[in-house]
């Protein structure tokens, strides 16, 4: 069993709760290692007692059949006293770690995340910035994420940073996390939410604080001038076809709200809710037939002439 753990721990690239990258997940990992140690100890002791008790006894060992204590005392000590002591330790650990993890921070960065089938809308209420599926945070600064859902229950889980909290319609839940170091942390929906539950992932991107300020500033600045060249044609296509019915792009007439806001699409690392890398090929494939990449998702296939598609891609990639 320990071997399995070690083998697994070496499997790099996992969004692992055992590889904490922030104080919340760090605290929980500490609780885990303590409990694992206790559990292994209990397993070994009780397991040894089971094996010992079941060994074949020779007639000569008749006397050995006596328990080390009286029967009642044996059950009392093993079944009640020792477990109670261990559980009391765990109760104290539970209460103290819960208090720690639910404590509000001074001056946290506030972010709102709303779950949709099967993607995440991300809002920075203090900066009036809206994006999707990629959550930029400043490294080292506490973040308070307010979670809700537009449709069914989802669950927000970034194992490297914190435990999970559900997104429940009609309810605003709060998750507190801090990313100690800049980096990219993978998150995924953890509550079954329908056909594409498996592909409702997202990224938390922790930037250097100054880089984060730049990012926010770029997003809150007035929308860029209307593009030139093929991107201009792309914008016209976006506004005049079905795209605009579901998606919003700031500074244009596209005001749809049932799909992700695409105002900064060109600067995103992934598409399809952290499904694939955001590059021209994947984007083209996604626009033409998103069902092939993520069957059952709510984006219908879009039929465009090749040059129209190229223009649309150029436009979306220009939105940064």
């Amino acid at each position: 069993m320990a071997a399995a753990l070690v083998v697994g721990a070496c499997g790099s690239g996992s969004p692992s709760a055992l590889d904490p990258k922030g104080p919340a997940s760090e605290r929980i990992a500490q609780v885990w290692w303590l409990m694992l140690a206790l559990a292994v100890a209990v397993y070994l002791v009780v397991g040894a007692l089971i094996l010992l008790s079941s060994r074949r006894k020779r007639a000569a060992e008749e006397g050995d059949r006596r328990l080390p204590l009286s029967e009642n005392a044996f059950i009392w000590v093993g079944g009640v006293a020792v477990p109670t002591a261990i559980l009391l330790v765990l109760a104290v650990v539970t209460v103290s770690s819960t208090a720690e993890l639910t404590q509000a921070d001074d001056d946290p960065l506030r972010i709102e995340v709303e779950g949709f089938k099967w993607w995440w809308e991300v809002r920075y209420p203090d900066a009036d910035v809206v994006t999707a599926n990629e959550i930029h945070v400043p490294a080292g600064r506490p973040v308070e994420i307010e979670l809700t859902s537009a449709d069914v229950i989802h669950s927000f889980w970034v194992p490297e940073l914190a435990g999970k909290v559900d997104l429940v319609p009609g309810q605003r839940n709060v998750l507190r996390l801090t990313a100690d170091e800049p980096g990219e942390y993978r998150g995924q929906c953890a509550e079954f939410c329908g056909i594409q539950h498996a592909r409702m992932a997202f990224l938390v991107i922790a930037d250097e604080p100054t880089a984060f300020e730049d990012w926010i500033e770029r997003h809150r600045a007035p929308p860029p001038d209307p593009p030139a060249g093929p991107a201009a044609e792309g914008e016209r296509i976006f506004e005049s076809t079905s795209c605009a019915g579901c998606h919003t792009i700031r500074g244009t007439s596209a005001r749809g709200t049932s799909g992700p806001d695409l105002s900064d699409f060109g600067s995103r690392r992934t598409l399809g809710a952290a499904l694939v890398e955001n590059n021209r090929g994947n984007l083209g494939g996604w626009i033409v037939n998103a069902q092939a990449l993520k069957p059952g998702n709510l984006m219908p296939p879009v039929s465009l002439e090749p040059d129209e598609l190229q223009a649309l891609i150029a436009y979306l990639e220009s939105r940064r």
Binding site: S97, P159, G163
Partner: peptide, 8 residues
């Protein structure tokens, strides 16, 4: 144990 359950 509440916080651990939040992870798993």
């Amino acid at each position: 144990v509440l916080p651990f359950d939040w992870q798993v």
